[in-house]
Amino acid sequence: MRYAKTELLAGGVELLVRNAVASDARALRETMQRTHAQTDYLLSYPDEQSVDDEQEARSLEETERSDNEVELVAIIDGRIVGSAGVSAVRSRRKVAHRARFGISILKEYWGMGIGRMLTDASIDCARQAGYTQLELEVVADNERAVSLYRCAGFEEYGRNPRGYRSATSGYQELVHMRLEL
């Protein structure tokens, strides 16, 4: 699935959102390491990411060839500042209509509209892939993200009070959200 779109952000900053490709592997891994170190709201810690550059490149090549999955990168001044992905919940026919969505952005780029651009791009890609439902989980205390998803049309359908167990803050409640496409 192909995606590429350029938009101007506040202050005239140009943002490119496009498919991640194999040559992005190292930069994407480095960005993921940083984003996962900058917030306690993401699924994993930096030391839990055990994929090397070669494995990441192969994974990106596979995703790039996929008709129903996508990994997007947000680029400012030639630098990857965030990423988002859409992936099938499972390959079984009963759940083939459902996809998962995840996103992360470097902290110094929060509040610029990048999250909304990546979210909108991911929704577009999920529709193109033929999904009829896009799902995500978000830490309840992450008010900025919850607000972003609600503005994009996601609705809460449940909560898990012990969804994450943070090394620093204990249990974190997860909000399950979905968007009908």
Rank of each mutant, 00 (worst) to 15 (best):
L9H: 00
A10E: 11
A10C: 00
G12E: 07
E14R: 03
E14N: 03
L15F: 01
V17K: 01
V17L: 00
R18C: 07
N19P: 05
V21Q: 14
R29C: 07
T31P: 08
M32K: 13
M32D: 12
A37W: 13
P46C: 09
S50P: 00
E54T: 12
E54N: 03
E56D: 02
E61L: 12
E64W: 15
R65C: 01
N68R: 11
N68T: 13
N68Y: 11
E69P: 03
E69S: 15
E71L: 05
E71K: 07
L72G: 02
V73C: 02
V73S: 06
G78M: 10
I80H: 01
I80N: 03
G82T: 04
S83R: 13
A84V: 02
V86N: 05
R90A: 12
S91M: 08
R92M: 04
K94L: 13
S104D: 15
I105S: 04
I105P: 01
E108Q: 14
Y109K: 10
W110C: 05
W110R: 08
L118S: 04
S122I: 00
S122G: 05
I123G: 05
A129H: 08
A129M: 08
L136K: 07
E137D: 09
V138L: 09
V139I: 11
V139R: 02
V139H: 00
D141P: 00
N142M: 09
L148K: 09
A152I: 01
Y157C: 11
Y164E: 05
Y164N: 09
Y171K: 14
Y171A: 14
E173M: 04
E173V: 08
E173I: 03
L174S: 14
L174G: 12
V175I: 15
H176E: 14
R178M: 10
